[in-house]
Write a protein that binds this DNA or RNA. Structure first.
Lengths: 200, 200
DNA sequence: AACATATCTTGACAGTGTCAAGAATTGACC
DNA sequence: GGTCAATTCTTGACACTGTCAAGATATGTT
């Protein structure tokens, strides 16, 4: 009969395991609940093993956030694929998709834009570019929507894309922070935002 | 010659002093830098003296935030006073004022809408009502602007005010979180937001 | 003067992130 | 295989955090 083997000294892919476990913990109980020691326990490793794969706690958070932005980028690509319908509807699905993403993984989205990441320490360069790609993608699309005539071309596309993003971001944040107490009005708010941002 | 008196056992108005010192510390270095022990040192009092005036750290933060919402409320009243000009311009000054307030005391604004306050623990009842009054004020004004004809009356005033708030909030947040790296484009973004939200 | 109450202090505890030093494992080169 | 260096992981320790319990000190009331 086989005894349960002691865990091998070298964890197979500790970096990956830490990242996954940390994301789960963040999504379940928020950033505040993520302690490096609990994380190490969950993965079955010593308190400081983490420091051979991440510079410090912030570095770990940056890695999680970078993956968040990567999925957001994929989501945008999917919602904005030109073969999925008329541009008005594509914008609508994009808005609903963005807010859905932001409010479903609320804790992750909060972390993605948390002050801890972007100001307290300097974020990873990898993270910076990933996030910037996301916004560039949106600006492209705004130009396209202006060309399609569904968005007003009175505005500088850069400014208009910033305002668009701000609206979605603010909507998601107010929801996630618990300022709006229920989730029922979210779709109606999105629809109103869409109507405001598009030409009548 | 008068010796420097030892500090009196009873601090005159410790609650007030703690509140002020804490706000200063938050505004200077952010929430993360606010430790109850440093705060106590700054005020010249023991570590735990605070607990006779606030239930815990969160309670202290709630009190700071409540005062923040109070000044925001006053700011709105001032910007929206009917005798200060035509409604279009009043809306513009309101927007610029809001974003100015949010980005000037960036750390305070962040705290006002931080997850720590609104979700992690239940916020003070006093805070809840103060914040709600702020939003109610905005909704009143949106109705007024719709009546004045500068905002579209196609939308439910409740939804439209939520979208308006979201836009300003998102704009301020993205700025404060350091996603927009410089402060120069802020006014242009505000102007664009104003144009988007108002009838042409 | 005596007592109750509000206020403040010291001591302690469990928890945190992180550094230093050492042990265990792996891989490369001879 | 044997030797050496590098990578990976562990234990011990440190300063720091928020908060509780118990005691000291001042104020207010009767």
């Amino acid at each position: 009969m086989a005894k349960t083997l002691p865990p091998p000294y070298h964890h197979g892919d500790l970096r990956r395991s830490l990242l996954d476990a940390a994301r789960v913990m963040v999504c379940e109980d928020g950033i505040e609940a993520l302690s490096l020691r609990k994380l190490a326990d969950a993965v079955g490793v010593s308190r400081t093993a983490l420091y051979h794969h991440f510079q410090d706690k912030n570095d770990l958070l940056c890695a999680i956030v970078a993956e968040g932005f990567a999925t957001l980028h994929r989501l945008m690509d999917a919602a904005l694929a030109p073969e999925t319908g008329a541009s008005r509807e594509r914008f609508a699905t994009f808005v609903h998709g963005y807010v859905h993403f932001a409010t479903q993984d609320a804790e992750l989205y909060d972390l993605m834009f948390s002050r801890t990441i972007w100001k307290q320490h300097t974020p990873n360069d990898a993270l910076r570019t990933t996030a910037r790609d996301c916004f560039r993608r949106l600006r492209e699309m705004v130009k396209q929507w202006q060309a399609d005539g569904i968005m007003s071309d009175r505005f500088d596309p850069k400014r208009l894309s910033q305002v668009t993003w701000s609206t979605l971001h603010g909507l998601s944040r107010l929801q996630n922070d618990g300022v709006y107490k229920d989730q029922s009005g979210l779709k109606a708010m999105c629809d109103c935002a869409i109507a405001v941002l598009l030409n009548p």
